[in-house]
């Protein structure tokens, strides 16, 4: 059977397929809204620790933290307002003003723009969506050698836990 179709109809069908494919495909990719599961990555912040190290210094501990925010809204940075360092026998909380006071440097990743990672007394660590930075803290106490848990508290979301070894 030979089907004769006008050129206009063929072009219409081709571009209809392109439009439908693009809309459904990108909708599925970004939000899972065709076959699920439904997602929206820009609702809540998600701070990730990509590197952590603790090295003893003459009068305390140099703590290096690489932090990035991989989810959440783009209008406001994610905040880490409190950090807990804990092992089986001991723990310490660092509030936002202590985080600000102990941070001596924030190294920005090469792709960070002018709104890079920062720290202040009220929000603690501030990490804009997608940026990454290394926070260097001079903690005024020594961590004895061993394995510790680092717990980062961000308002409204579950705390982030990561293990590190103090040398």
């Amino acid at each position: 059977m030979v089907i004769h179709m006008e050129k206009v109809v063929i072009v219409g069908i081709v571009f209809a397929i392109i439009a439908v494919g693009w809309i459904l495909g990108t909708g599925q990719w970004a939000y899972g809204n065709v076959v699920g599961p439904l997602v929206n990555y820009s609702k809540l912040p998600k701070v990730e620790v990509t590197y952590v190290s603790a090295i003893p210094t003459a009068n305390g501990t140099a703590l290096r933290l690489n932090l990035t925010d991989v989810d959440g809204p783009d209008a406001y940075p994610a905040s880490v307002t409190m950090v807990e360092i804990v092992n089986s026998t001991w723990h310490v909380f660092l509030n936002s003003s202590q985080l600000a006071n102990y941070t001596v440097t924030v190294y920005q990743s090469p792709w960070n723009e002018n709104k890079g990672d920062a720290v202040n007394w009220y929000s603690g660590f501030e990490i804009p969506l997608g940026s990454q930075g290394q926070f260097v803290l001079n903690l005024p106490f020594k961590l004895s050698p061993g394995v510790y848990e680092l717990i980062l508290y961000t308002p409204a979301v579950k705390p982030v836990e990561v293990s590190f070894t103090s040398s």
Partner: peptide, 19 residues
């Protein structure tokens, strides 16, 4: 690029799920 309003920051925001 020297201003705090520079839109380059928007591109940074796209990064995490840019595929």
């Amino acid at each position: 690029p020297l201003s705090a309003s520079f839109v380059g920051g928007k591109l940074v925001n796209f990064l995490p799920h840019a595929g």
